[in-house]
């Protein structure tokens, strides 16, 4: 639409002015066409973000209005809020276990599915399915039932003479049900791994076989190094998703963070402060701290990447 090749030549002295009015004519239509997206972006993403940043420095309460209170929200968070630190510890525990578990599962299944046997497409779809319905309420509700008193897990344990356990009510176990759920929803990283595996040239494995390498050696020396860019990408994405986990805890533990706040994920606590006790200012401050922490962690992972991520193009094969 703004293709300059279509412009007719103009006289030099008026070029600038003309150029500006042309911008108006040509681009305006373009902006109008993308206005649905633009309006939504500004109304639902950009402006709310700016507002929430401003609110982080106020005591905004939905019913009460707001006052500017400087850094008080942050002081309260770090020094006076017991539940805040419980939510941090629950989230960190979740991320530390759920993210690596999910990546290992995803890679394992991707390798199993990286063959040309018949019916493999069906299995790919089947393994991806839990992630398609991933954040949905239905999966979380089903998971609740699996770990119910009369649920699948207790039934299996019962076969081995183990007494039934209230998984979701026990402070030592409840979070593990959520971590396992996360590990099971490995679909999207798996697809990305699968695509990565298909990129690895077959000749490498062939020549390794001729040299007498076994499966483990091939995996450690060929697959893993060539897959590091994909691992890197998946790690970043899953790290971010892990810190933002909300739905699973919201459904499975009724958004309560129970038992004893062991499933009180950060995002859940932000929600509770914002919508249950209406403390939007405080909730905004918490949200921005999370953003800063995620940004910092991502930056750290990026920094370390030069030591372990291997790009073929750097040196060639």
């Amino acid at each position: 639409m703004t293709d300059s090749a279509l412009r007719l030549p103009r006289r030099g002295s008026r070029k600038r002015k003309e150029g500006r009015s042309r911008w108006g004519e040509n681009n305006l239509a373009g902006y109008l066409f993308i206005s649905p997206w633009l309006i939504a972006f500004f109304a639902f993403a950009f402006i709310p973000m700016v507002l929430s940043f401003a609110l982080a420095f106020t005591d905004y309460h939905i019913l009460r209005g707001w006052n500017f209170i400087g850094l008080d929200n942050f002081q309260r968070m770090f020094y006076n809020d017991v539940r805040y630190w419980r939510s941090v510890s629950a989230t960190v525990k979740y991320v530390v276990f759920a993210v690596p578990l999910r990546l290992v599962f995803a890679l394992g299944v991707a390798m199993l599915l990286n063959t040309n046997r018949r019916g493999v497409a069906f299995y790919r779809a089947a393994f991806y399915a839990p992630s398609v319905v991933g954040a949905s309420v239905a999966v979380a509700v089903m998971w609740r039932e699996v770990f119910n008193r009369e649920g699948l897990v207790n039934a299996i344990l019962g076969q081995f003479g183990q007494p039934s356990i209230w998984w979701l009510g026990h402070p030592d176990y409840a979070i593990w049900t959520l971590i396992l759920l996360a590990a099971w929803q490995f679909g999207s990283p798996m697809l990305i791994f699968l695509a990565g595996l298909k990129q690895i040239p077959e000749q490498l494995y062939e020549s390794a076989s001729i040299d007498g390498a076994n499966g483990i050696q091939k995996f450690v020396r060929i697959t893993l190094p060539l897959l590091t860019p994909v691992i890197f990408f998946n790690l970043i994405m899953q790290l971010i998703a892990g810190f933002m986990t909300f739905t699973q805890a919201f459904i499975i533990t009724n958004g309560s963070g129970r038992p004893l706040d062991t499933t009180l994920f950060y995002a859940l606590y932000v929600y509770k402060r914002g919508f249950e006790t209406y403390e939007m200012g405080y909730a905004s401050a918490m949200a921005w701290v999370m953003l800063a922490v995620i940004a910092l962690l991502t930056a750290i992972v990026f920094r370390t990447s030069s030591h372990w991520v291997y790009y073929e193009t750097d040196e060639g094969i």
Binding site: R149, W166, L168, G169
Partner: peptide
């Protein structure tokens, strides 16, 4: 009922 049970059964 013990608290584990009550909490696992909420909702």
């Amino acid at each position: 009922p013990p608290i584990e049970e009550t909490i696992a059964r909420t909702g």
